[in-house]
Structures are given as C-alpha cells and as structure tokens.
Design a protein around this nucleic acid. Sequence first.
DNA 1: TAAATCCTGTCA
DNA 2: TGACAGGATTTA
Length: 273
Amino acid sequence: MPELPEVETQVCDLQAVIGRKILAIKSDTPKSFVPALPTFRRKVVGQKIVTVRRRAKFIIFEFASGDRLVAHLRMTGHFLLAKSAAPLEKFVRHSFQLSGDKLWLQFSDIRKFGTLRFFRSDQKIPELEKLGPEPLERKFTKKVLAARLAARRGKLKAVLLDQTFLAGIGNIYADEICFAARLHPSSKVENLKPKEVEKLWAAIRSQLKKGVKNRGTTIGEFVDAHGRPGCNQKTLRVYRRAGSRCFVCGAVLQKMKISQRTTTFCVRCQRVV
DNA sequence: TAAATCCTGTCA
DNA sequence: TGACAGGATTTA
C-alpha cells in the first residue's frame, strides 16, 4: 500500500525522532535486516539520527556519522511512535528504543515484506541510484516528463509503475492518475500526443499532491506514525471500484491485469491511444 | 514479459 | 477453500 503520499506522511511524522540516539533494537522478524541483525545492531546502536527523509518509497534515516538506515515499507509496513516499549499494534515486528524522553520507534508489518538496511557513509545505495525523478519536485516539469516518455515504449500504467521511470507511484495512484488524465491504462506511451502528455503530467502532480494533503490512502491497515488512518480513500475514483459505476459517466468500471496488477478503469471516460 | 517468490490476512 | 491484496526482485 504505501506509495509516495503514504511514505511522505510517515516521514513527516518521523521528524520527531531527530536528535535521538538508538539505544536498543528488538525484533521477532530478523529476516527483515540487512546485514543480519547481530551486525546491524552493532552498526546502528549508539548512532544519533540527524535527518529523516524520503526518496521514492524509501525512508532514509541519516546518522551523525554519515551512516544511513534505509527502510522500505513494501506492502504492509509502517512506523509507529510509542511512549512505551509495549507494541501499539498486533503486528509490530521490530522496536527501536530511543534516547531522551520516553520514545520507541516501532515497525509494524503484517506480511513481513518490509526491509531495514544499513549503509556506511561511504557506501552507495544501489536501489537509489536507479530511481527516476521525484514527481513532486519543482524540476519535474512537463518537459522532463515528455523527454522521459519519448525514450520509452509500452503500456502507460506499466511505465508509471516503473520506479526507474518515475519514483513513488504504486497501484492505487497509477489507476487514479490514468483516470484523472482520461487515458486508458493500456494506452501506449509512444502514441501520446503533447496535449495528452500535458494532461498526464497535471494528473500525476495533482493526484500525488492530493494524497499527501490527505495523509495517505487507507485501504486496510495504513496509518501514520500516530496510528491514525489517512483519508485519501474517500477521493478515489476507480481504484478497487470495478463493477461499480463511474462517478463521471455512470458506465460500469472494468478491470484487467497490467504488469500483474489489478487495474480498474472506465471504458467511456478513458481513451486508448 | 511473465511468473514465482517473500508472508499473512480478508473476503467471497 | 481459493483468490486476492498497497511492492519489488529474481528467475525463466
């Protein structure tokens, strides 16, 4: 679930850990750590957090030493801020005890796909090197999108989901972006006209900004670091609405698989190009 | 380019 | 009981 807006929401809340040292790490799911937990613990315990930021769907904790802890929430992961060591949710897998006033950073993750990785200050983070631009940054202009699209072929939704093309979009926002741009998700990007690229650019920006403003989409279990759900789900137009009627034209929404992902769209509103 | 994989929960 | 779920990598 967590896509750019959900990760951004988490990072915003996690500013509360800045200036704290990690005193101890407890985990019942050691598989999530790279390197393995004993080494990870040796490298991380005692380090002071100086920044917490987002890149694509990654959360990067930077330490005073320059070393970094890179977390990925995958499908069901999320951080929680707790005032005691007691787990705030049933599926808390890891817990970081922090220095200062009582504060624990917990990591809840039903499906255990989330990852926590350690990198020394002089190490490159290969996954970050390969990422495409941040869609909400100023320098991601219509021109940038047009230039990147010109170098690609294939189905629009598959391209939107590709993190090396653009960073941070997942299944929910990909469907909503296609609908907002009135483009069918299986449109071929090589066929997009300048007008359509412009609509696509505007849709990417507006849908992601809306998601951030609404503090994420909660379908199932996403919550912010205080355990509160987001409210972007109330604004969804197509995602998971197959079989229901389009809010715009009343046609029954259809679904298909693109890149192995369920894709919902309106045949009447969204044009195949 | 598609399928299998990592897990566990929910819903039909 | 089986299909499906927000992600991304690995393998064929």
